[in-house]
Nucleic acid binder design. Structure first.
Lengths: 374, 374
DNA sequence: CTGAAAGCGCTAACAC
DNA sequence: GTGTTAGCGCTTTCAG
């Protein structure tokens, strides 16, 4: 028996004990009232609930989780994508008023998708973007508070994931399955190379462009590499020579870097490229500014394409032709996968073969490639 | 002394005990290694960390929260705003390809704002939309797992909030302070009536329109009422007669209802209104469809305005003139308020006077009112 | 249908 | 520095 707290101690958040005492039942009954109402006589139940309301009692999620080993929460870890430029550039983009509301990113879509799916299954969603580097890695914090979670590729150190995935379901998003020892994780990716290949083919065949330049990413990124691969395939298929490396690799895939990349590419000797293909939309948008500054018309003088299909891509002028990734859907599928693992019972959880799915992407033809009037 | 678990029990998620045992230290030390690394001798620390990694140990957020009475998580409860129409209408809006990514709602903005601010303060964000009605009200679930949270007005029963706010900081969003007994909650709202008044004034003075029609909401909604009030004030100031009630009240503020409302208003006898003012953007967009179907040009034949400033409003044709609410900022301010309460120490928490702030809004003039070529 | 008792995994004084 | 010892608030058998 736990020592009864003095008298009606004020200012202390009420617990099952308080409610139990005041309603003349045991804590077990109070617990039952919340977890399995029907197992308690109606009269007793009402009395308990009344006292609870009266006392301002709210069951502690922590205590509950501890005792029942489950939280009813799913998580999502994503990188701190915030592109400083993105916020203000939207307005500058075409002289409209400020509208940072339009800059809906990648991760927002995934959040939307996950939240909805999670809700359908009765879960709440815990989201956290990676901070530079706290004492305890972000994942640990999230992992410790959820039943399972999704991680945007390369958001957290592989090593951490390896450890964590041993104790709860984790689904890897967008990044192709990292070859390492994480091959037991469920994983969802999009058809990066298919998309970039198709986009490139479009530029070559439908617009007759042949002098292309590709801007990739300096850091290791399977997604970006896959895109580049698709680009190369399309070029080769059309008999266009391409190197094994992108024409340029930027340190960060932001608008500022995209603008800089455009300058760099344009300053190179030799024939000016007819099209600039960027590994993501933000860079493409940044390039648009450079091009405008240099007095080059898009797409007449040079076509520009991005990748991702973020809202921003359609708001700038000219609207950017890109490859849309079904991020919302990815979020939903992630939840489905997690829920499946979670409901699969402890044994099956590890037994089941890791799932790996590839979501289809679609080329979005807009003005920046010449498909619609700029 | 807790009974040592048999031997290296496999398949059981490791705990401090396991780590302690295997690294030859006490559980207290293991705990210290995570919470206060510097208080442990480097050598010991490394050893513990190695074992932890080895075992796949991840501190349980629940146990931690229970023991330390704090979760490091802030929450947000929002209504299930999903407008079935919103998803597909975007594309239909102006013949562009499907782009539901552009339909960023109200709540998404708040989430963005909160997530960022929360991250800055070292908190994670738990989000949950109200489901029809689970056993335990949504709030309770969230409330039990966070240190404090924000609630979009009218998302959860006042009664629940009253109870919960007694034990942790809660900030009410967007809905004006509910007169009830919730006046001790911090609260953030936007200048609804100021915005609608200014928009209306613009229509009257700058565009010379005088036959206006206002579409409100049938259910009780302080925000919507405040907007209507602003509308009335502007009309009266211009010597235009207006009733005490909106010209029409819809049961749901969706696109479908907006379309229906436009039809209803247009079918009424008497002079056709020169402008249709809607209490939110979604309805305005819905009205656009009706108007197009009936062969009426916007804004030449009839002007249309919305409220909120969601991304969708600028994507349709003609773009909708509206009043933008700084939702992102609202999310940030909410976190600041919560963090302040939380860091204010237990005593101060209740002591501090409830804060109430009103964020300014801004009229966004676009094509649907005649400000830019349709 | 209800009560008693044993934890769940970790933190937090307090000793050593 | 590190170990001991209590709980934190709730769920969960197992009895009755």
């Amino acid at each position: 028996m736990r020592p009864t707290r003095g008298t009606d101690s004020v200012s202390t958040t009420p617990t099952v004990y308080d409610v139990a005492e005041r309603s003349g039942v045991s804590i077990a009954t109070v617990s039952r009232v919340y977890r399995n109402p029907d197992s308690v006589r109606a009269q007793t139940r009402e009395r308990v609930l009344a006292v609870a309301r009266d006392l301002g009692y709210v069951p502690s999620g922590n205590a509950r989780g501890l005792a029942s080993r489950s939280t009813g929460v799913l998580g999502l870890c994503f990188p701190d994508y915030s592109d400083p430029d993105a916020e203000s550039e939207v307005e500058a983009g075409h002289g409209d008023e400020a509208d940072d509301e339009a800059a809906m990113l990648y991760s927002d879509q995934i959040i939307r998708g996950m939240e909805r799916a999670a809700r359908r299954h009765g879960y709440a969603l815990l989201i956290a973007a990676s901070l530079k580097g706290g004492p305890e890695s972000l994942v640990a914090k999230v992992a410790g508070r959820v039943d399972g979670f999704a991680v945007l590729a390369r958001t957290v150190p592989t090593e951490d994931l390896e450890v964590i995935s041993r104790r709860q379901p984790v689904v890897m998003l967008a990044g192709p399955r990292e070859s390492n020892q994480l091959d037991h994780l469920d994983h969802i990716e999009v058809a990066n190379s298919d998309g970039q290949r198709e986009l490139t083919r479009h530029l070559i065949e439908d617009h007759g462009l042949r002098r292309l330049a590709y801007v990739g990413f300096a850091e290791e990124s399977p997604d970006v590499e896959a895109r580049f691969r698709g680009y190369v395939e399309a070029c080769r298929a059309a008999g266009i020579e391409v190197g094994a490396e992108p024409d340029l690799r930027v340190p960060m895939m932001t608008q500022a870097e995209g603008a800089r990349a455009a300058d760099a590419l344009l300053d190179r000797l030799g024939d000016r490229p007819e099209a600039l293909l960027f590994a993501n939309d933000q860079m493409a948008v940044g390039a648009l500014h450079t091009l405008e500054r240099r007095g080059l018309r898009v797409p007449q003088d040079v076509a520009v394409t991005g990748f991702d299909g973020i809202a921003l891509s359609r708001l700038v002028r000219p609207a950017v032709t890109t490859v849309r990734q079904p991020m919302r859907r990815m979020g939903e599928e992630a939840v489905e996968l997690l829920v499946r693992r979670l409901s699969g019972g402890q044994p099956a959880q590890n037994a089941a073969e890791p799932v790996s799915m590839t979501l289809p992407v679609s080329v979005v033809r807009r003005a920046s490639c010449g498909c619609k009037p700029a």
